[in-house]
């Protein structure tokens, strides 16, 4: 046969085979051992890459879970079904992560709180918080009502009602986007199993709170005394509920004089007055 055909076939074919073998060999030699559970866990996660878990995204969380750096309940968005799936893959049956929801620690809406001045400008809390006096509201801790959290919420769970952000617990996935955007650090994640909430963030003393807002926490400590199991503590003129201890007896909410301790978003103050 003509050499002009054989040489190309042999040389290029040989090079191809040689390179192929070399790559195959290198593939084995330079193999980076990746846990086969990582892609499985990754598939079980919601894949929204919201970063609510504190990791860079679902891929990073999957790696962390497999390496044992994160709990299988670390994903706040996926809920019980995700935990179950990951648990299966990891061979763990950890307790289901408690469902959490965001809660805005303020209820001093337009009709309940006083204002230092009228604000007419861009509706963005991050901007409003930079203004003199920390915003137009007299209370420097309260919700500015600019709706920045509502815009940040990827699940449309926050609505602005009466100048206050309100979270729809059903829609909330506890991804934490609103927690990160609120310039007043007003929003926190609380367990859904508990219905009792302190809807105030003011650390001012009682007199100042009284003059700023009709529905603020004045730090009177009546709730602390009312609680049979010491689940409520008043620190810096602000009541705080320890959700791990709270049994939901509502004793604090019934005693609260300003009605800032709420059960299922409702103040029990009027009912207490009626029954008394």
């Amino acid at each position: 046969m003509d050499m002009s055909i054989i040489y190309p076939i042999i040389s290029l074919g040989g090079m191809g085979i040689l390179f192929g073998l070399g790559l195959g060999f290198a593939g084995v030699k330079f193999k980076v051992p990746q846990d086969e559970r990582v892609p499985l866990v990754r598939d079980a996660l919601p894949g929204a890459n919201c970063g609510g878990c504190g990791f860079a995204g679902c891929d990073a969380l999957a790696t962390a879970i497999v390496e044992g750096n994160a709990s299988i309940t670390a994903c706040p968005v996926g809920g019980a079904s995700t935990v179950e799936k990951i648990g299966e893959i990891m061979g763990l049956t950890a307790e289901t992560g408690e469902r959490q929801a965001a809660f805005v620690k303020c209820n001093g809406g337009l009709c309940n709180s006083s204002y230092q001045y009228d604000y007419k400008g861009l509706e963005d809390c991050r901007l409003m918080a930079q203004l003199a006096g920390g915003g137009s509201k007299s209370c420097t801790y309260g919700c500015l009502g600019g709706g920045t959290c509502a815009k940040a919420c990827p699940f449309d769970a926050i609505k602005m009602i009466d100048g206050i952000a309100k979270v729809d617990q059903e829609k909330c996935t506890a991804c934490g986007m609103c927690v990160a955007t609120c310039p007043k650090s007003l929003i926190e994640l609380v367990p859904c199993s508990s219905d009792v909430r302190v809807a105030c963030n003011s650390r001012d003393n009682g007199k100042v709170v009284r003059s700023n807002c009709q529905v603020g926490c004045i730090g009177c400590k009546l709730c602390e005394k009312a609680c049979p199991i010491e689940a409520v503590k008043v620190e810096g003129f602000l009541a705080k509920i320890d959700y791990e201890k709270c049994t939901g007896c509502n004793a604090c909410a019934l005693k609260c004089p300003t009605g800032v301790i709420k059960v299922k978003g409702e103040s029990l103050k009027k009912e207490a007055a009626k029954s008394a």
Binding site: F19, G22, L23, A26, G27, F30, K31, V32
Partner: peptide, 12 residues
């Protein structure tokens, strides 16, 4: 081939 090899090497 080279790019593949470099990629493997750097990955490792």
């Amino acid at each position: 081939t080279l790019v593949q090899l470099v990629e493997m090497f750097i990955k490792k």
